[in-house]
């Protein structure tokens, strides 16, 4: 699939795959208008409102101690959750794409399940498990183990919500690639782990990175599920998205939007990295 096939240099007269210029232009305008309305403007408004009182107020909102504590908790949560889901994604993809076994379809459905569960329901699930009235809560609390309303619950719900993201990237990729190289490596006498790290892993690394980026973005941005289990203690169990809500509730709109820009920038950074990866992948695929 080289891009050249469709370059504007293609014959202008009656290409069977091209629409009349007027139609083409109308379609482009419609699509761009839709994207501008639903993607660009919401993004823009965050930055405009964050800077409406000037850069000094902006910087003050970001450097404020509660904001810093929230950022730290968010980073810590991601640092716990992303590697765990990375391992899980690799294991699940390896099991699903390299072996045949009964119940495979069910397994794939289960891997996807958290994706369709409402974040609020996800939070509720963990309240039912670890709440003082829950399944394990009383037993754990009696032993001084605190899960709900502290970082373990935040990490758990975040892991739940972002669980499918790495696996979903890897499964189709590994399915498409097949396992000839892995088998060749084994035939040549490589140990299983060596084969895995030297052959299997490098083959999927870009897809893996893609999944990790997405997982990271979602882990840092999760709101509904974390809101149910966090307890909203300032400086202790508030993540950045929750901090945005608190500021908003305190009439500090400019500060709320300022902190929101941090999260928006994170999202944009993720998108940029993904675009870079995409470009690299396609170049390799074409080569």
């Amino acid at each position: 699939m080289s891009e050249r096939d469709r370059a504007p240099a293609a014959p202008r007269w009656r290409d069977p795959r091209a629409e009349p210029p007027a139609v083409r232009r109308a379609l482009i305008v419609a699509a761009v208008a839709f994207l501008a309305l639903f993607l660009l403007l919401p993004l823009l408004v965050v930055f405009v409102r964050a800077l409406e009182k000037g850069t000094a107020a902006y910087l003050a909102a970001i450097a404020e101690p509660y904001a810093r504590a929230a950022a730290l908790l968010t980073l810590r949560t991601a640092a716990l959750v992303v590697p765990a889901n990375l391992l899980f994604g690799l294991a699940a993809a390896w099991a699903v794409t390299r072996f045949e076994f009964r119940g495979k379809n069910l397994l794939v459905t289960l891997v996807d399940a958290p994706f369709t569960v409402s974040p609020v329901v996800a939070g509720l699930l963990f309240v039912l498990l670890f709440g003082a009235q829950g399944l394990f809560g009383p037993w754990l609390l009696a032993r001084g183990v605190k899960i709900l309303f502290s970082w373990p619950a935040i990490a758990l719900v975040t892991a739940f919500v972002t669980m499918p993201l790495v696996a979903r990237q890897l499964i189709p990729l590994m399915q498409a690639q097949g396992s000839d190289e892995e088998q060749a490596a084994l035939t040549l006498g490589a140990s299983p782990w060596r084969m895995f790290f030297r052959v299997a892993l490098p083959k999927v690394r870009w897809g893996l990175l893609y999944g990790v980026l997405l997982c990271n973005a979602r882990a840092m941005g999760e709101f509904g599920a974390v809101s149910v289990v966090s307890g909203h203690i300032r400086g202790s169990t508030n993540t950045l998205p929750l901090h945005v809500e608190i500021l908003y509730d305190e009439y500090q709109f400019q500060a709320a939007f300022a902190v929101a820009t941090l999260l928006a920038l994170l999202g944009l950074l993720t998108l940029a990295a993904q675009a870079l990866l995409d470009w690299r992948l396609r170049r390799r695929g074409g080569a």
Binding site: V127, G131, A132, Q133, K146, L148, F149, H232
Partner: peptide
């Protein structure tokens, strides 16, 4: 509700 569920 949060205190009942274990908010310390």
């Amino acid at each position: 509700r949060a205190v009942i569920d274990g908010l310390e």
